[in-house]
């Protein structure tokens, strides 16, 4: 309750993935690009749809965990947000597949709540760090770092 008194207004991009609206802070987003042909990577984690060439860098295209499409469905042209991932060792970025970018807005981050709804949302994706309640339904807030899980031993 008291959190509502403090206001922490930040710019945020909101977008739709499979009908659910998500938001992410604007600083983390390098660009919004159309994604056409990508190269499929056998053996990659299921959240990785493929890789693309973005100005000479090879960038993984990822889908939000828990929203991965049917395996056999063909890849269609779509939009992706190029998201910078905080990392000490290297420049990391991924392209996050989205269905539609709804708006760039200012949101009051202090109003983000850690509610039961969040618990439900977290089941869907590790990257969800909060929920913003709004008149037209909850907005799930994504953390860039959550898009790239720490190195797991492949094949183990």
């Amino acid at each position: 309750m008291s959190s509502k008194e403090k206001s922490e207004s930040r710019s945020m991009v909101t977008f739709l993935i499979h009908g659910q609206e998500y938001g992410m802070k604007t600083e983390a987003i390098r660009s919004i690009i159309p994604v056409g042909d990508m190269t499929f990577v056998p053996g990659a984690p299921p959240s990785v749809a493929g890789v693309i060439n973005l100005r000479g860098d090879i960038i993984p295209v990822v889908e939000l965990e828990g929203t991965t499409r049917d395996d056999d469905a063909p890849w269609e042209e779509g939009l992706a947000l190029v998201v910078e991932i905080p990392d000490d060792a290297e420049d990391l970025a991924v392209a996050l597949m989205v269905d539609e970018v709804t708006q760039v807005d200012r949101a009051d981050f202090a109003r983000i709540e850690d509610t039961d709804e969040l618990m439900v949302a977290r089941d869907r994706a590790d990257a969800v760090i909060g929920v913003l309640s709004r008149a037209d339904g909850p907005l799930l807030i994504l953390d860039p770092a959550g898009l790239v899980p720490e190195e797991k031993e492949v094949g183990a």
């Binding site: 042909d37 053996g43 984690p45 990785v48 090879i58 990822v62 190195e151």
Partner: peptide, 24 residues
């Protein structure tokens, strides 16, 4: 190939083709 792809045995890295696409 960077995280979250990382080290896939058998796919050490990738290259960019003259047409701009990526080949493993």
């Amino acid at each position: 190939l960077r995280r979250p792809i990382g080290n896939i045995p058998g796919l050490s890295s990738a290259t960019i083709r003259p047409d701009g696409s990526v080949a493993l």
